[in-house]
């Protein structure tokens, strides 16, 4: 479990993280979303103590990360796939990291196999592709068999097969009761992977809710109606909570009433309908709506 309370980080005049509080629960995958520069990476660096908070506090299982007797068993972190000396082989990097905690060669071999790095383990990291670098970063994160995983953009640079592998891996880790905190800019990926979302915009938390709630609450859902009697149907549908938009002739976008209700009304008035399609908002749209609001609010505040 990760607990942040009033966490703030300023770099000079710039506030990267602005008084945020959240809890990442074990046993589920928590997605950490936000546009570039929103403060996601900074927050993750604060959790593992690479940066010192300006104010506030963040703990992992009740203690500051640095206070744990075996930090690598508490938290496995992939913060930056390039956090490896380019002149060292992947295997030696893992062996050096493992040695600090007395983790044996056997476990190093396991994580190499697990991440599919067998063929390149003896090669220097400088020649690695982005995807291989990510796999090595994930191997390091898994090294200590940690109770909490913090992964910053883990699918960045991975091929489709790698993306699928990461998705299965994090779901499996969460199902074992571990805490999984995962950042990504791929909203569609989050919809498939995460159970819970923390959305960050300009250093502040915009939403902290289950994925389903974010999709449902983020934007209104609408129904697309195609009818030869579009004008007549629009009049029939008109009501206080119902909005009807005409995009092209014969096509209506209706909000505020279910598809079934529209069909019933049309039948009662003897109006033919050629298409009736419920439009569910994607997480991506919900996310855009959320962050757009934040940006608008900010612009007004500056003015």
């Amino acid at each position: 479990m990760i607990t942040a309370a009033g966490l703030t980080k300023r770099y000079g005049a710039k506030t990267a993280v602005d008084d945020i509080s959240f809890i990442v629960q074990p046993g589920r995958v928590t997605g950490f979303l936000g546009p570039n520069g929103a403060g996601k990476s900074t927050t993750m660096r604060l959790i593992v103590g690479l940066d010192r908070p300006t104010s506030g506090r963040v703990t992992v299982n009740g203690r500051a990360f640095a206070e744990h007797r075996a930090p690598l068993h508490e938290v496995g972190a992939l913060l930056d796939a390039k956090a490896v000396h380019t002149g060292r082989t992947a295997e030696n990097h893992l062996l050096a990291m493992a040695a600090t905690h007395g983790i044996g060669r056997q476990r190093v071999r396991e994580v190499i196999e697990l991440t599919g790095l067998e063929s390149v383990a003896r090669k220097r990291v400088g020649g690695f592709s982005l995807g291989m670098g990510q796999r090595l970063g994930i191997a390091v994160a898994l090294l200590g068999d940690p109770a909490t995983l913090i992964l910053d953009e883990p699918v960045n640079g991975l091929d489709p097969e790698g993306v699928l592998w990461v998705r299965r891996l994090v779901r499996h880790l969460a199902s074992e009761g571990r805490t999984v905190f995962l950042s990504s800019h791929l909203m569609s990926e989050m919809a498939l992977t995460a159970d819970h979302l923390v959305v960050l915009g300009r250093g502040r938390i915009i939403t902290d809710a289950p994925v389903a709630d974010v999709i449902a609450g983020g934007t209104r859902s609408s129904v697309l109606v195609r009818s030869p009697h579009a004008s007549r149907l629009a009049e029939v549908l008109a009501g206080p909570d119902i909005a009807v938009m005409r995009s092209e002739s014969g096509l209506l976008e209706v909000t505020g009433i279910e598809a079934a209700g529209i069909g019933d009304l049309a039948a009662a008035h003897g109006l033919a309908i050629h298409e009736l399609t419920p439009q569910t908002a994607s997480l991506e749209e919900a996310y855009m709506a959320l962050t757009a609001d934040d940006v608008e609010y900010r612009t007004e505040a500056v003015r």
């Binding site: 075996a70 040695a99 600090t100 905690h101 007395g102 983790i103 044996g104 396991e110």
Partner: peptide
């Protein structure tokens, strides 16, 4: 796709120690 992780080795028995850090720096 690789199999889901197996935690065959009881890695959690170990912990951070100065001798471990010395060994790590020697490997590096």
């Amino acid at each position: 796709t690789p199999a889901p992780p197996q935690h065959a080795t009881p890695a959690r028995a170990s912990r951070l120690s100065f001798t471990g850090v010395l060994r790590s720096e020697w490997i590096k």
